[in-house]
Computed example of a mutant assay.
Amino acid sequence: MKHLVLLSAALTAPVFPATAQAPAQTPVPSAQSAEAVFAERLVNDPRAEALRPYGQRIPPEVRADKTVQFGKALRVPISSVMAEFGRIGAITPTLKPIKEGDRIVVAFWARAQRTEAGAPGKLCRVQLEATPVVRTIFEQAFDVTPEWKMYKLSGKADQAYAPGALNAAFHLGCAKQTIDLGPVFILNYGR
């Protein structure tokens, strides 16, 4: 749970412009209350073993990795570039309802291994998508380093969704590479 508290603090810490000053006495929440708030915002199972890979003959594998949060990662080797890069990837579904207008943050750990000519790894598209008919709510592409790093994207829910009606999706087929995905957090910050 210590990891959840640290992640919660990193995602919710106020940012003050260089010319502004922080309030003199800002109450600091206890670890227990920060953990409870984070658990309330979390709307998916963040563990790497809960990711659902799809779309290729070489099966991805969940590997032990003590250098990433929760100690496991999903390794996805991509042996060739695909014109439709969304045909190889992984998803994680929501487990709680989402209301229209809720601000959703998708935060995830990733790194690239075995890229071509030392190029950065490519997450062709990370998106929050509606299902079962796939429709993008918001999306972003990422260049990924060989070291573990947390990345994030955010947007607003365009309508209300029942549990399981949204996925965070990772489309990976745009480069020959091996991508490691660590924990993925879908967080609901409300309106």
Rank of each mutant, 00 (worst) to 15 (best):
K2G: 11
H3Q: 11
L6C: 13
L7H: 07
A9P: 06
A13F: 08
V15D: 14
A18D: 13
A18L: 14
T19F: 15
T19M: 12
A20D: 13
A20G: 14
Q21D: 10
A24G: 13
Q25T: 14
T26Q: 15
P27V: 08
P27K: 11
P29A: 11
A31R: 12
A31E: 11
A34L: 14
A34Y: 09
E35Q: 08
V37S: 09
V37C: 09
A39G: 06
E40Y: 15
E40I: 05
R41C: 05
L42Q: 02
V43I: 14
P46N: 06
R47D: 12
A48I: 05
E49Q: 13
E49K: 13
L51Y: 03
P53I: 07
Y54V: 07
Y54K: 09
G55H: 02
Q56V: 06
R57N: 10
I58Q: 13
P60H: 01
E61I: 14
D65W: 04
T67A: 11
V68A: 06
Q69V: 14
K72V: 05
A73F: 12
A73D: 03
L74D: 04
L74K: 08
R75L: 13
R75D: 05
V76N: 00
P77S: 15
P77G: 14
M82T: 06
E84C: 10
E84N: 10
G86K: 10
I88C: 11
T92R: 14
K96R: 12
P97A: 13
I98G: 01
I98N: 01
K99I: 05
G101S: 01
R103G: 06
A107Q: 09
F108G: 01
F108C: 02
W109Y: 10
A110K: 03
R111A: 12
R111K: 15
R111V: 11
A112E: 04
T115L: 09
E116V: 15
A117F: 15
P120A: 13
P120Y: 00
G121M: 07
G121S: 05
L123H: 01
R125Y: 15
R125A: 12
L128V: 05
E129M: 09
E129C: 05
E129I: 10
P132Y: 13
P132L: 09
V133C: 04
R135E: 09
E139Q: 12
E139L: 10
Q140R: 14
A141F: 12
D143H: 06
V144A: 09
T145W: 08
T145R: 15
P146E: 10
W148Y: 04
W148N: 08
K149H: 11
M150D: 00
L153A: 03
Q159E: 08
A160D: 08
A160C: 04
Y161D: 00
A162T: 07
P163G: 10
N167L: 12
A168L: 08
F170S: 03
F170L: 03
L172H: 08
G173K: 04
C174A: 07
K176D: 02
K176L: 04
K176V: 10
T178N: 08
I179N: 01
D180C: 02
D180G: 02
P183L: 05
V184A: 12
I186V: 10
L187S: 03
G190E: 01
R191H: 05
